[in-house]
Design a protein around this nucleic acid. Structure first.
Lengths: 203, 203
DNA sequence: CCCTGGCAAGTGAGTGCTCACTCACCTGGG
DNA sequence: CCCAGGTGAGTGAGCACTCACTTGCCAGGG
């Protein structure tokens, strides 16, 4: 149960952005990931959110803005989880890396509709705004992971023969592999020991 | 220098498919990866190939067929490289894994326009035909890698505490991470020791 | 308690544009 | 003169976005 100390959270400003803001966002995430950016027409987005097309444009100036808002909504949720983990085991880098990976894994399984967003952004990377968002999120993760790998090596908690920067890239890149696996319905993904076997590669 | 023993290779059947077949394919690959599937209009594809739009439809029944043909063209080139490596060092699983990874890495650097194709297919994975192509290529790689990891473990060439299946997935998933890195212009990608540091993670 | 004016929120037919694909026609080598 | 190979204006469908309009809520005057 989180504290209600800060009145300026996303939930509180909901009404300031309009009563349907959150409904539209979550419905749009569903549609975007069921199809893709181009196939998710504004007509369909509006229909699935239970509103008229015109209403959509009272909330978001363009379809692209709506999409980027969805992307931020998803990445913010992930980052919140990572911060939670950091609060719990930030002093123990090995546990941190394990917990973050597991938390991400759970997130993918709980929110199948959020899985494909990274791929969309990557695909639209010719567009600078899409690329900037992806860059922000990926580099945040790579840098945080690198810091933790360095610490873990210093503390002697993991093997010391790896380059922390390269390790961090492939730790984060593993997130994309998980997306790929779930897209291809790889059964390996569902094996109970999967995450432990995966982490053994690095740690 | 490959042998000219088999007359039914892609190159030989070129004229049977029409005199402009290869030109259209390579120009299309360039356009698809510079933009994306939806933004690569048939008008643009034709213009870049130096032909009229109508001609495009004498060679490929639909835009989607053209795209899938491009995808196969690229993956076939990659598979040929892997087969070459197998011929050279197939008896030495550790070398095989290293050589395949390096060969892929070189391929990405030599052919920047082929990098994004995997991401496109992933993005269009709601379409069964796109998904099937991706599935074919990824599973080919995962299975081959798993076989080699098993062999390498049996021979005691690499650490024996990893699950070969999971290792194979993340070895192949690493290919996507390389795409991500080059898209984000990560300088780490260009470091001379990069590949060696990367392989040390697994081997 | 009712009436009413104002206005935030919601609507959906309409608009102009772009696209994949077609087809009637052209061209040059044998 | 035949025809494989090439052409590009044309077509209908679908798109993002607009705008003149409707709805429902609530304040405050009678």
């Amino acid at each position: 149960m989180p504290m209600k100390a800060e009145p300026e959270t996303a939930q509180e400003t909901e009404s300031a952005r309009g009563p349907r803001y959150n409904e539209i966002l979550t419905a749009s995430i569903e549609v975007f990931s069921r199809t893709n950016y181009e196939k998710a027409t504004t007509a369909l987005l509006a229909k699935e959110a239970g509103i008229a097309e015109g209403t959509l444009y009272r909330y978001f100036p363009t379809k692209k803005d709506l999409f980027l808002e969805c992307f931020r909504y998803i990445t913010n949720q992930m980052v919140e989880r990572y911060i939670d983990v950091y609060r719990r085991v930030g002093q123990d880098p090995r546990s941190y890396l394990i917990e973050v990976a597991k938390s991400y894994f759970e997130f993918l399984q709980e929110n199948p509709s959020m899985r494909l967003f990274m791929a969309f952004v990557l695909n639209n990377s010719f567009d600078q705004d899409f690329r900037d968002e992806l860059d922000r999120f990926v580099m945040f993760n790579v840098n945080a992971t690198e810091r933790m790998l360095r610490l873990a090596i210093e503390k002697g908690e993991i093997r010391d023969d790896i380059n922390p920067r390269v390790g961090a890239w492939f730790f984060v890149g593993g997130y994309f592999t998980l997306i790929l696996m779930s897209e291809l319905d790889a059964d390996d993904f569902k094996h109970p020991d999967f995450m432990d076997d995966l982490l053994k590669l690095f740690l």
